[in-house]
């Protein structure tokens, strides 16, 4: 695992993040157009859209790096819409940033706003005004998973770049390259398994790779072990307790543990449950999987609307308890162990 003399380690997702545009192995069309901006030292506002882990944030940083050099962070304001408390905070920060000095040779600074699609329509309107107000000294790069959630007036003010899901061979070859740099032994099956479980999300793939490597070597069994461990056992316990044991109060305690101890948000829990209900270890009739998925969607919708995490997820647990009861009543053959 790396040369012995190097005492400190970093997360590989950071360590092997391409620093400049020419290092980026994917999204060739996007990269080519961004390199033109660097050459001309001019660009419009940009909107990077695409699934997670496809290089949107990396491209934004690489672009800034190529424009301003090593110390590019002086000229880039990084904001994350889901971490900033409201548009007012963003407004203040942008205002302050706009006043700081300009870089040499480039007539603008960059405001990078990640997860812009998490902003409400109202906040986006305010953002639009900000983009206009400071256009003489700043350019915005907005990053979104779902570009349709960005309001029209903003979309029309931005050059939109679509990032596509990474191809399997690209992910696998990148992982293999990292393994060789880190002197970690790996086999192709293991790397392919990583691609399968990460769904083309490069950051997640690299995180899994690093954790699997920490277990010894990157093979299929370690990869699945990591993925299994990374899913809190409470998620499975949640399903089991509500659906099979029908114990609502206990399930709700587990839910609280997940949210308070692990710090998962309601949406996180819904997403993790969704990952879980289609796994083969979760033994229920197929139509029940679909029914749960449908309800998960409903709950996530309510959460996105701004409802309370714990109350909405408790409603989900109540639904699971009911589903479980009906399941026990209808199934005549005792094929799986379930308490009465």
């Amino acid at each position: 695992m790396g040369a012995q003399s190097v005492l400190a380690e970093l997360l590989w997702a950071e360590k092997y993040r391409p620093r400049s545009l020419q290092e980026m192995v994917n999204q060739e069309d996007v990269v080519r157009r961004l390199q033109v901006f660097v050459k001309e030292k001019n660009m419009p506002h940009l909107l990077f859209a695409g699934p997670p882990g496809t290089g949107k944030t990396t491209a934004a940083h690489a672009l800034a790096h190529d424009l301003y050099g090593e110390d590019y962070r002086m000229y880039m304001l990084e904001l994350n819409a889901s971490d900033e408390r409201g548009i007012d905070v963003i407004r203040t920060k942008v205002k302050e940033f706009a006043r700081s000095k300009l870089p040499v040779g480039v007539p603008f600074k960059i405001v990078l706003l990640d997860e812009a699609d998490n902003m409400t329509a109202d906040a986006q309107q305010a953002l639009r005004r900000l983009m206009e107000m400071y256009v003489d000294v700043t350019r915005f790069i907005l990053i979104a998973n779902y570009p349709s959630k960005i309001i029209e007036p903003i979309q029309s003010r931005c050059a939109v770049f679509r990032f596509t899901t990474l191809k399997k061979e690209d992910v696998v070859s990148r992982l293999k390259w990292i393994c060789s740099r880190e002197k970690v032994s790996c086999d192709d099956k293991g790397l392919e398994a990583i691609f399968d479980v990460s769904g083309g999300d490069m950051r997640r793939a690299i995180n899994i790779l690093q954790a699997a490597a920490a277990l010894g070597e990157v093979n299929t069994s370690n990869v699945y072990k990591v993925v299994g461990l990374a899913t809190p056992t409470e998620i499975r316990a949640l399903l089991k307790t509500a659906l099979f044991e029908g114990d609502f109060t206990k399930a709700r305690d587990i839910l609280r543990k997940l949210m308070i101890t692990y710090g998962l948000s309601g949406v996180d829990v819904v997403k993790q449950l969704h990952r879980e209900i289609f796994s083969s270890e979760f033994t229920v009739p197929e139509e029940v999987r679909v029914e749960i998925a449908d309800y998960l969607g409903e709950i996530q919708f309510r959460l996105v609307e701004g409802a309370d995490d714990e109350i909405q997820l408790s409603a989900l647990l109540a639904k699971l308890v009911l589903l479980g009861r009906n399941l026990r009543q209808t199934t005549t053959q005792p094929s799986k162990p379930s308490k009465r």
Partner: peptide, 22 residues
């Protein structure tokens, strides 16, 4: 977040679990 440049919520459910394994 300062290392990986993504939201804290992503860190909590997609990075910290892997760190815990290591």
């Amino acid at each position: 977040v300062s290392h990986l440049k993504c939201s804290t919520s992503l860190i909590k459910y997609d990075v910290i679990p892997f760190l815990k394994i290591i």
